[in-house]
Design a binder for these strands. Structure first.
Length: 310
DNA sequence: GAGCCGTGGAT
DNA sequence: TATCCAAGGCT
């Protein structure tokens, strides 16, 4: 620590300074300097495209499962235009078992839009990022921050949990992001751009490695001493139960099985092959229809199906 | 805004 | 074994 700056930007009405006069970002950024994981999309050579690909893949999917697919993806499609030149079905196939395969379709669509509208370069403008398919509030801020060093509130599930505990004093954040959370995130953002970008990555990493959903490790937390939830005795979550998603027997499971068959086939697949994956014909047909309407499957003549060529 | 959309590891 | 949950987005 060489900067004894007094953070004169924290006024009395600043929620960031409401519970404690000490800003959170300094200890968290220092902690990050020592404990950040060496992830491929954090290396300089990843570039904005690497960052963007990783963000798509990491939407609801753990780092450990993303790593191998990310490497293959970047080796095969090192630039957006390389992916855009392929059939969307190839993106779906290369997505493998990461889950939520519509993300592969959207990433392909985003690569096409980047190639057409932005000369093949991932845009650095937040609004232009937000306009791309598959990029919402979180991902736009993440790409702008991680790839271009810009100052944006980056509110993912990790950061929301860290804020809920450290500042608000509750175990878990609400199910959906609220205006209050956005306001808080903006208030906590360091003024300096490079510092804000560092804070975004650091607060996210803290939630991923230390302030985890279960079995949090306050012993290793750089802000444990100022954590409102911990200081309150770590009260258990109140309110509606956090939505638990069932899976067995759902359309999602059927869709997954159907798409797995198509992914592993080299070309078109007959209806009869798809009929093997699920016994109940109504649900099976509904799932297949859903895949087709989502653009993940292309129906051909004679009851054949394949991954989309266009 | 609630519901939907995959998959597999950890507990 | 059943449940939880992992860097969300879209309708």
């Amino acid at each position: 620590m060489t900067a004894p700056t007094k953070s004169s930007h924290s006024g009395p009405s600043d929620p960031a300074a409401a519970s404690s006069g000490v800003p959170l970002h300094a200890p968290v950024i220092d902690w990050f300097a020592d404990h950040a994981r060496d992830l491929p999309w954090r290396r300089p050579e990843a570039g904005a495209w690497g960052v963007m690909v990783s963000e798509f893949m990491l939407q609801q999917t753990p780092v450990s499962r993303v790593l191998p697919v990310y490497e293959q993806w970047l080796a095969r499609w090192p630039r957006p235009a390389d992916l855009a030149a392929e059939a969307p079905g190839e993106a779906v196939r290369a997505w493998g078992r990461l889950g939520y395969p519509r993300r592969a379709l959207r990433l392909h669509g985003a690569a096409a839009a980047i190639t057409e509208r932005h000369g093949g370069d991932v845009p650095s403008d937040h609004a232009q990022l937000l306009a791309l398919p598959g990029i919402g509030e979180y991902t736009a801020a993440a790409v702008a921050s991680f790839a271009y060093g810009q100052r944006h509130p980056v509110l993912d599930t990790n950061v929301r949990r860290v804020f809920a505990r450290a500042v608000t004093g509750v175990q878990y954040p609400p199910n959906a992001t609220t205006a209050a959370e956005r306001k808080l995130a903006r208030a906590l953002l360091p003024e300096q751009e490079s510092r804000a970008a560092r804070w975004a990555a650091a607060s996210m990493e803290l939630g991923a490695l230390v302030c985890t959903a279960k079995n949090e490790s306050c012993r290793r937390c750089p802000i444990a001493g100022q954590c409102a939830w911990r200081l309150a005795g770590k009260p258990a979550h109140e309110g509606p139960p956090r939505r638990g998603q069932t899976y067995a027997g759902t359309d999602r499971q059927v869709r997954g099985r159907l798409l797995a068959v198509l992914r592993e086939a080299s070309g078109a697949v007959p209806q009869s092959a798809l009929d093997q994956v699920w016994h109940e014909p109504v649900q099976r047909a509904r799932a297949l229809d859903g895949l087709v309407s989502d653009g993940l499957v292309e129906p051909l003549a004679d009851g054949l199906y394949r991954l989309p060529l266009s």
